[in-house]
Computed example of a mutant assay.
Amino acid sequence: MATGWAGDGAVQEQIDATVEDAVKRARSRLQKGPSLERCEECDAPIPKARQAAVPGVRLCVACQEAHDRDEAAFSGYNRRGSKDSQLR
C-alpha cells in the first residue's frame, strides 16, 4: 500500500540501494596487489598464513586492529539513534 507520492516498493528499493552502496564501498576498500612480507606501519614480519588468508595485506594484526579501532571511532552518525540524539 503506497502512501503519498511513494510507489509500492519505494521503501524496499531504498533499503536495497543502501545495502548495494555499502557493499560497493566495502569492496572498494579491499586491498589489491601482492601481500607485503613486512608491515608498512611498524616493519614487523607478516606471517605467511595471514598473507595467504588476506590477499594484498599491508599491515600486521596489531596495526590492523589499531587501524580498525581508529576507523570505527570516526564512522559517522548513528542511523539507528533517535532524531533528537542526532541533533545534540
Rank of each mutant, 00 (worst) to 15 (best):
E13L: 15
A6N: 14
S28T: 06
S85M: 12
P34M: 04
R69K: 15
Q64D: 11
E13A: 15
C39A: 03
S82R: 03
Q14H: 13
K24G: 14
T18K: 12
R25K: 15
C42K: 04
C39Y: 02
G7P: 12
Q51E: 09
C42V: 06
K32R: 13
A62Y: 00
I46F: 08
P47M: 06
D8W: 06
E71C: 09
E65N: 06
E13Y: 08
R88W: 05
L30F: 04
A26W: 09
R88D: 08
K48N: 03
L36S: 06
Q31P: 09
A49N: 07
A17D: 10
Q14E: 13
G33I: 04
I15M: 05
L87A: 11
L87E: 14
A26R: 14
D21Y: 12
A52W: 00
A53Q: 13
T3R: 09
K32N: 04
A49C: 00
G81Y: 09
H67M: 09
K83N: 04
K32D: 02
A6C: 12
E13H: 14
A22K: 10
V23W: 09
A44D: 10
C60I: 03
A26G: 12
D8I: 05
A17Q: 13
D21S: 14
G33D: 04
A53P: 03
C60M: 02
K24S: 15
S75F: 00
L87S: 13
E40C: 03
G9K: 02
A26S: 14
L36I: 02
D70Y: 02
C63A: 05
T3F: 00
V19W: 13
C39I: 02
Q12M: 12
R50W: 08
E71G: 06
V23Q: 13
D8F: 08
R88C: 04
S82F: 02
A10Y: 07
T3S: 05
A72P: 00
R29N: 07
G76N: 06
D68K: 09
A10F: 08
R29Q: 14
D8V: 08
Q86F: 04
H67E: 10
S28P: 00
V54K: 03
S35E: 04
D68C: 02
A22T: 10
G4Y: 11
Q14M: 12
E65L: 05
P34N: 12
A2Y: 06
V11E: 14
V57M: 01
D84Q: 10
A2Q: 13
A6K: 15
D84Y: 07
R79P: 00
P55W: 02
K48Y: 06
C39L: 03
D68F: 05
A52T: 07
A22I: 08
E20A: 15
V11M: 11
R69L: 13
S75R: 10
D8A: 10
R80F: 15
P55R: 11
Y77E: 03
Y77R: 01
S85G: 05
E13R: 15
V54M: 05
